[in-house]
């Protein structure tokens, strides 16, 4: 990875302000003790550690942050949030960063792209039926991530245990749920 210098000049970034607005978390409070990273169960698979993300938010490195896989690999287990000595809900910061990435249509790469595809697949089934549909969400994920037989073994085992239902479970007032999606979409576009 190229290590371009971080340039701090007069163009002050609003990244930490945007994060504050989204998550109500003040990232400037972070003093980089690293306890979030130390306790993060997924840190081993991340491209940037949680404390590096916090640091980059402070420095306004918006591109590095929003393009990192970390923000979507965070499982929102919130171990970081309950242990942070500065009382920062780091998991909420991560949440707001993935939302910001979604708003900017950043698809993510590699692992984070997969997370994004699954989330989208999940929401698509939700939008369709008012309830999520496990099988369809997994199928959509497999197709969109070009790995048709992904998790087939698990699917088969679940099927044998009677834990797979092909027929979707539809909310009667499914329009109410669709409306929620549409209103929010309009709100975002208007904004």
């Amino acid at each position: 990875m190229m290590q371009q210098p971080i340039v701090i000049d007069d163009r002050k970034s609003d990244l930490s302000k945007e994060v504050l607005l989204h998550s109500a978390q003040d990232s400037s409070l972070c003093f980089q003790c690293g306890k979030c990273t130390a306790g993060c169960p997924v840190a081993f698979a991340m491209d940037l550690t949680p404390n590096q993300i916090m640091r980059m938010v402070q420095l306004g490195l918006i591109d590095d942050v929003l393009n990192s896989q970390t923000i979507r690999l965070c499982a929102y287990c919130s171990t970081c949030s309950v242990r942070c000595p500065r009382n920062i809900a780091v998991a909420d910061v991560m949440d707001s960063l993935r939302i910001m990435a979604a708003e900017r249509n950043i698809p993510g790469t590699d692992r984070s792209r997969k997370v994004n595809i699954f989330n989208q697949a999940f929401l698509d089934t939700l939008n369709m039926f008012g309830r999520s549909h496990e099988v369809l969400a997994m199928l959509l994920f497999n197709l969109r991530s070009y790995q048709p037989f992904h998790n087939a073994k698990l699917g088969l085992k679940m099927f044998n245990n009677g834990k797979i239902k092909l027929k979707p479970d539809r909310v009667k007032a499914v329009n109410e749920v669709k409306e929620i999606f549409q209103r929010i979409n309009r709100l975002r576009k208007g904004a």
Binding site: Q3, I6, V7, N51, Q52, M56, L59
Partner: peptide, 15 residues
């Protein structure tokens, strides 16, 4: 001002 951010492992330049 040429410094570094050793926590990120990156050089830093401040104007």
């Amino acid at each position: 001002v040429k410094g570094a951010d050793t926590l990120l492992g990156r050089p830093v330049e401040v104007v």
